[in-house]
Design a protein around this nucleic acid. Structure first.
Length: 726
DNA sequence: GGCTCATATTTTTTT
DNA sequence: AATATGAGCC
């Protein structure tokens, strides 16, 4: 048994040993946030005698929860029995599975989870065939986004207030979409949260039961909770509950998914007794990396300023490299990693290359392949997103839950078995007229074929499929999962269908075999568990740890990780910050946080790389270097070896601008709102105090009493003001 | 009903 | 550049 408080600094110890009741730990990157959370769990179990099954710990990735479990077990010196530890989505999925039959309308414990592709199919079908709308003007993806946003804010179709014609359409699709989910006995990702909130809000007895169970609730990455998740935590913790949240506003990067860092403020309001702990010592990075990161993040308004310090020493300068194009960019990365490894500065596994979009990984992969060096790729084409995998999972889902219409339609003619659009239309119309599901209609076709409008070849094809499906359904309870899957593969001749002799076909069959291997691990478990896990587990979670090779990953996937050497590539306007965020100040603030997250992943060395030219959408683009580069003081950065002085001078105006931090202009970042009494700094007028604020349009007209220059009226967007704190 | 070829569209980030 | 959709033909 390890001493649980050993090796913690005083701030961390205070947080870990905090008395029961609401606690918020605000902490910068590399300050041991997750460590505090794991030690807190161990402390509760070991020192306070809390039984593990009274503990609920939620994280945002499966990887984080797995890591947390093993760390707590390490501290306690044994397996941790009964603790509920997982992502919000996984935990909710389990609760719904248990409670659905008794408490949830239109949902049984056999329910399946629809991923984004399934959702899109459903939305598209609703738009095109149910509402007879054009899916060009009413883009399914956009409508789905709107629906998802509503769900994340816990707005049901009944509560949805359309404020425009577009939203009118969203509402109509939303209503029908929910009906279709219900008919399929399915939930989407957002429903997992929303229906859990519904469960607790509508059934006080159930809530009371869960509250008795979970006397201690811990939340990691609290800044990334959305309204539904917050509500869930709020309900379960009650007013006096023991709630322990850790987070960092500056690392909030999931706003587009409904996350709202203002939940941190809400927590303060909802829990006046909230104890807040700040962790400001960084154990990860060098001072240079910290200072540079701070220079970048300091320009975001509306944040609690944190002074991060480290005892790691200044370390090396950051290194800036301008590549001619993305190929050279990738070559530079590969070459440099090889050099660092050769010099013994780091191992290959200590290096990571981070980028804004998955599309950027391709060129990097090519460069590694050319250099004959191994690498680990996180994300990109997700394993479970591959067509052949989705096909087979759809088979399993229909066998598990035949109401699942999306999956049924996916497999009914895959591989082709003579069931075309016309036949499907007839079948659907017939099923609708009888008010039954497609599966029930198929069965009726078997028992009483002459009652159907289907004849000849079409009828035979459908009956054949129905017989297959029923056969597998019987088999399901008798044999293990791998046997069932093998049977499906055999009876559908899936290999002949997918492996057409081409390289791609062979690769697809390899993937199928990989899936077969995977099912072996679930031999003893119910099919529901398997289906749930493959839907909720992402590729980020399946990162293989034991290969000593550089990691390629998006900035989003990088959160919570750290590496000796980090390469941030594609640091260009349009990529980071991303083009799509340009018009939204809040989104722009998030792009900046993304840069910050990337920079603070580095322990020893940080390379900042951008390209002069880049091929995008088949076109040559000349992007300017990212604005974030010019926020980093020149004194912290040096040029990469081999960079010519000319290149340096070429970018001089745009790349170098050191000096006092300036908050991003209001035109770009609406988040700045000055209040009377606020102390500010102006480069020309010096220090002053805001005495009056008037909002004019999106801007603010503020009167400031300057110590030296007297009263001035200024427009916030042009004034270049820095708020002074304390 | 299914296959092939041409055209359009895509790319933000993920549970 | 790579994949998804659609038209046209068998």
């Amino acid at each position: 048994m390890v001493d649980i408080l050993e090796g913690l600094n005083p701030q961390q110890t205070a947080a870990v040993t905090a008395p029961d009741g609401p606690v918020l730990v605000l902490a910068g990157p590399g300050s041991g946030k997750t460590r505090v959370l794991t030690h807190r769990i161990a402390y509760l179990v070991d020192q306070r005698g809390v039984p593990p099954w009274h503990i609920l710990a939620v994280t945002f990735t499966n990887k984080a929860s797995r890591e947390m479990r093993s760390r707590v077990e390490g501290l306690l010196g044994g397996a941790l029995q009964g603790i509920t530890l997982g992502t919000f989505h996984a935990v909710c999925a389990r609760w719904l599975r248990i409670e659905a039959d008794r408490y949830l309308d239109g949902l049984t414990s056999e329910y399946v989870i629809y991923d984004e592709a399934d959702q899109l199919k459903l939305v598209k079908d609703v738009i095109v065939t149910e509402l007879n709308l054009d899916d060009k003007t009413n883009q399914p993806a956009r409508i789905l986004n709107a629906i998802s946003a509503a769900k994340n804010d816990l707005i049901s179709p009944a509560d949805y207030q359309p404020r425009s014609y577009r939203e009118e359409i969203v509402l109509r699709v939303y209503e029908r979409y929910q009906e279709r989910l219900r008919a399929s006995n399915a939930v989407d990702f957002d429903d997992l949260l929303m229906r859990s909130v519904e469960l607790f809000a509508r059934h006080p007895d159930v809530l009371a039961r869960y509250r008795r169970t979970y006397t201690h609730i811990l939340v990691d990455e609290f800044q990334d909770t959305n309204a539904a998740q917050y509500q869930l935590v709020r309900l379960l913790a009650g007013d006096a509950g023991s709630l322990f949240c850790v987070g960092d506003e500056d690392q909030s990067i999931y706003r587009w998914r409904g996350a709202d860092y203002r939940n941190v403020l809400r927590l303060r309001e909802d829990y006046p007794a909230l104890r807040t702990y700040l962790l400001e010592q960084n154990y990860r990075s060098t001072q240079s990396i910290l200072d540079a990161s701070r220079a970048v993040i300091d320009r975001n308004a509306n944040r609690t300023p944190k002074v991060l310090f480290t005892h790691n020493g200044p370390g090396e300068s950051l290194i800036l490299y301008e590549a001619h194009n993305e190929q050279f960019e990738a070559d530079f990365v590969v070459r440099t990693i090889a050099m660092l490894v050769r010099q013994g500065i780091t191992e290959p596994g200590g290096c990571a290359v981070m980028y804004r979009t998955n599309a950027q990984s391709r060129v990097l992969e090519d460069a590694f392949v050319r250099a004959n060096l191994p690498y680990r790729l996180v994300g990109a084409t997700r394993f479970y997103g591959r067509r052949e995998i989705k096909d087979l999972l759809a088979y399993l889902r229909v066998i598990h839950n035949p109401a699942d219409q999306v999956s049924l339609l996916r497999v009914i003619n895959t591989p082709p078995r003579g069931i075309g659009d016309r036949t499907l239309q007839t079948l659907t119309a017939w099923a609708t007229s009888m008010g039954v599901s497609l599966y029930e209609a198929l069965n009726r076709l078997l028992t009483d074929p002459d009652s159907s409008p289907l004849t000849g070849r079409a009828r035979n094809a459908l009956a054949g499929f129905a017989a297959l499906l029923n056969g597998w359904r019987e088999l399901r309870d008798k044999v293990a999962l791998p046997v069932l899957l093998r049977q499906i593969l055999d009876e559908t001749r899936y290999q002949q269908y997918i492996d057409d002799g081409t390289e791609q076909g062979t690769e697809r069959w390899e993937n199928v075999r990989e899936l077969l291997n995977l099912t072996a691990e679930y031999e003893e478990l119910p099919l529901a568990t398997f289906l749930e896990e493959v839907t909720l587990v992402s590729d980020v979670d399946t990162l293989i740890e034991d290969v000593n090779a550089p990691t390629l990953l998006t900035l989003h996937a990088a959160k919570g990780l750290e590496f000796d050497v980090v390469f941030l590539v594609g640091l260009e306007e349009g990529i980071l910050p991303h083009e799509r965020s340009r018009d939204d100040p809040e989104a722009m603030a998030e792009e900046r946080r993304l840069m910050y997250v990337g920079m603070t992943r580095a322990r020893k060395l940080l390379y900042l790389v951008y390209s002069f030219a880049r091929t995008m959408w088949g076109d040559q683009m000349l992007n300017t270097p990212s604005r974030y580069l010019s926020d980093i003081p020149a004194s912290l950065v040096s040029m990469a070896p081999g960079q010519s002085f000319a290149v340096h001078r070429l970018r001089a105006e745009t790349t170098w601008m050191s000096g006092s931090p300036r908050v991003e202009r209001a035109a770009e970042d609406e988040a700045i709102a000055f209040k009377t009494g606020q102390r500010v700094y102006h480069p020309k007028f010096g220090e002053g105090i805001v005495v009056e604020c008037k909002s004019s349009g999106t801007d603010q007209e503020i009167s400031i009493a300057f110590r030296e220059a007297g009263m001035k009226r200024l427009l916030a967007s042009y004034a270049n003001l820095t708020p002074l704190d304390g």
